[in-house]
Design a protein around this nucleic acid. Structure first.
Length: 279
DNA sequence: TCAATTTGACCTAG
DNA sequence: CTAGGTCAAATTGA
């Protein structure tokens, strides 16, 4: 058990290293417009990434099936079409969240742009906490009955860190933020076509979130790469915005790929390398 | 004009 | 009663 777990951790580290390298390569591709050598390198790296993460999840699942079911149930939801006992009769629904709701946390240097559209609906000062807590729900709660919510709270001042807690899953079907449109006014049409081909090869399932990527409590130990330090997302200055957005878009693509690899793993439990040779 | 945010009121679990 | 999660009227801003 411990041996497999160590293996899994090594795979995770390798995958992350590849992802970082891929980020650098793709960033170069985006700037140089076209370079076949770099393209080939990025393709190979994507293969490595997929294999590493797939193997990791296989190992984890093999020996920690029950635990995984709990921790990663948002990936393979045990969709018990539970009759909703709490809100059925409530004209003004329960103000307290049901304990059965799935949650997962993420600590980050900046408020997370996770590709979903959120709408702030509340803010509270928290006892013994220096900072207030913001409450967000999915923008499509009304038009698509998407029940996903999240809470964001700043937890540290010095190395600014924010804790984001997600509740529930997105049931909305809004992929505009993740998938590039062919007609989008991107100056680097070459790079956008690469991303499009990835998305076509692995169509994103209706749940677009990939929270397990961010749920590792020891994540920061493996994240000291330039990829991280440059992707300061929303709060970056206008001059650095373009490069920052490029990184963000790439991370969105990685989220989608990773999500699909897990999805495949779940449905084809015995295919150890479900993506080998596909790219 | 209308959607998003702000913010005090409202509501419930503990 | 308190803390914190949610509502919704008022405000903001594109």
């Amino acid at each position: 058990m411990d041996h497999d777990r160590d293996e899994a951790m090594e795979e995770l580290v390798r995958g992350r290293e590849c992802a970082n390298k891929l980020g650098q390569v793709l960033a170069a591709v985006m700037k140089n417009n076209s370079n076949h050598g770099e393209l080939a390198a990025s393709t190979s790296l994507v293969n490595n990434i997929l294999n590493s993460f797939t193997n990791t999840l296989f190992l984890l699942k093999k020996h920690h099936q029950m635990q995984l079911k709990r921790d990663f149930s948002f990936i393979t939801p045990t969709k018990s079409p539970h009759e909703d006992t709490s809100t059925a009769a409530a004209g003004r629904g329960s103000y307290k969240r049901r304990k059965t709701t799935e949650t997962w946390d993420k600590i980050s240097e900046s408020p997370i742009d996770d590709g979903h559209q959120w709408r702030k609906y509340g803010q509270k000062t928290i006892l013994n906490s220096k900072y207030s807590r913001d409450y967000y729900r999915c923008t499509h709660k009304l038009d698509q009955r998407c029940e996903a919510t999240k809470q964001v709270q700043r937890v540290e001042e010095k190395p600014a860190s924010y804790k984001t807690t997600y509740y529930g899953h997105h049931t909305c079907k809004n992929t505009d933020e993740i998938i590039f449109e062919p007609t989008s006014p991107l100056s680097h049409t070459n790079s956008s076509s690469i991303l499009l081909s990835f998305n076509n090869a692995y169509p994103t399932p209706n749940k677009q979130d990939c929270p397990f990527l961010s749920s590792s409590p020891s994540q920061d130990e493996f994240m000291s790469s330039p990829l991280d330090t440059t992707s300061t997302l929303s709060s970056s200055s206008s001059s650095a915005k373009h490069e920052s957005d490029d990184h963000k878009d790439m991370m969105m693509m990685m989220y989608g790929l990773l999500y699909d690899s897990v999805d495949q793993l779940d449905h084809h439990d015995h295919s150890f390398h479900p993506f080998l040779g596909l790219l």
